[in-house]
Structure formats: structure tokens, C-alpha cells
Amino acid sequence: MPANPARQTTEVLSNTDFDHRDLDWYIDRGVQILVFLGGISAIVFILGIFIFITKEGLGFILEDFSFREFLFSPTWRPTSELKETYGILALVAGTASVTGLAMLVAIPFSLGTAIFIAEFVDGKTREYLKVTVELLAAIPSVVWGFIGLSIMNPLIIDVFDVPVGLNVLNAGIILGLMAAPIMTSIAEDALKAVPDRYREAAEAMGATHWQVIYKVVLPAAKNGLLGAVLLGVGRGFGETMAVLMATGHSINIPTSVFDSVRALTATIAAELGETAVGSPHYQALFTIGVFLFVITFCINLTADLIVRGIRKE
């Protein structure tokens, strides 16, 4: 009866189901559970971290917190004998100015590299370039900070004739170079995702190589490229060590790129270690943590939605 072999097999399997619970079956089940745990672990951790930092900062948010002072006062004086002031406006301005400048540095670099890798080179050269870009991402941030402190600082003083080289410019360049590799990778993926038939069609119309890229590939990949930029912004907001070392760590709303500033993350890093656990200062630092978490979460979510948007099309 050769009519339905598939059905027959199913019957055989279901009849002998219990007999198949041998070692392999248990291994299969075990691995499934392990993979499932691994899969949800990221969600568990992120929720855990969010609950932890909110819990630590909650006392401050409920008691001493003044929304207006926190967001709109540039005065951060948590250990004042006169009156403790917890205003993060200057810190937000510091983080924003450094990140903004970093993007001005990183966008041309990463976009250029991505276009070159995706459109101009093939084979070995391409692989070498990709590996090199990824290597750049592996440099620890403290090393970047050290470069900012000991190489960029004297260089900026010499070149621009300014009193001190630890400023927005220094940190912006350092942070731009740090963010460029990840932006390059994402941007290159976005360019690769543009179907070849677009390019072929454009070439068939007589477009030059540059015209193909400029008129067809870049517009088609624009969501992915925007996503790459937003991920770079997220990286800039969250970066701590290099910013702590290169900005000059000075509470200041910058009016030029040669002003020293202080970043939100650097403030937490510099002050948390010696703060009495549970004090308003400690809780205020955790409230900054919550603030940063929410901002980077929004940026990454937007980036993700934008990138997802092009995949669906």
C-alpha cells in the first residue's frame, strides 16, 4: 500500500512515542530549554536593571525631586553646605554637544567607509577592510580616553592656541572615532540590502557608478543609514570613560567647541564611588541613570523601528 507513506510514518511515531524518550530526547529537550532561557535572558536582565536603578533612585524622585530644578537648572551642587542643588541642564548640554560633534565627525567617516566597502571593492580587499573596521570597535574606551588626554590635549592647545585642550572638540573627535565602526557596519548592511536589480536598472539607463550610488542606492537605503546614525547617537550618550577623560569634566553650558563640559555618564562614574549609599546625592545619581536609560532606550527603539521599516518594504 504505497498510497500514503507520510501518514504511516506519523502513526508509527505516535505509537512508539514513549519508547523514543531516550537520551537524545532528553538532550533535545534540555537544549531547547537552555536556548529559551538564553533567548529571554536579555529581557529579564534589562527589566532587572531598570527596576534596580529606579528603586535606588526612587527615594530622591519621591522626596527631594523638583522636576523643574532637575531638568532646567544648570547648577549641579549635590554636596553644597549651603543648599544642595541637583540640576542636570548643564550635564545634558555637555552630553548633547559632545554627541552632536561626534556625529559630525562620524557620519562622513562611516558613510564614506560603508559606501567604499559596499560599492567599490570586492573580494579580499573588502574582507580586510571589514575586519579592520571591526578591530577599531574593539579598542577599549579607556584607551580612547587616554589618547584624548595625552595626545589630543596638547595638540589642540598647540593648533588652536586655546588655554586647555580638554573640551567639546577633543571629546567629540574621540567619540566620533569610537562610534564610527558600529555605524559603518550598520550602514554597510543597509547598502547591501538594496537589491542588485536597482543598480542594474540604473546602469542600463546609462548612469555612471557615482550616479548609481547617489541617485539610486543611497535613497533606497536611507532608512538603514538613519538607523545607523541613531545607533551612533545612542553610543555617544552612553559612553563614559573616554568622555570623562577628554571633556575636562567641568559644569558648563558650552558656547564654543573649545569649552570644557561634563557629561551625564561621567558625573555618575566620578561621584558614585565615594557617595554614601542611600543618601540624596546617591539617589540623585541613580535618577540620572534612569534618565539616561530612558533616553538611550528611546533612541535605540527609534533606530530599530526605522531599520525594521526598510526590511519590510
Partner: peptide, 20 residues
């Protein structure tokens, strides 16, 4: 330093480079 130089009733100015 704040206590000796500025006394108990004054704060440091903002915009100092705060080294760690």
C-alpha cells in the same frame, strides 16, 4: 579646601575642571 578658603557659607563656582 572649600571650608578653609570659602568658609561654610559659600560654594565653589561652576565651570571648574573637576579632576578625579
Amino acid at each position: 579646601f572649600r571650608e578653609i578658603v570659602l568658609g561654610k557659607t559659600r560654594d565653589f563656582r561652576l565651570g571648574t575642571r573637576d579632576m578625579h
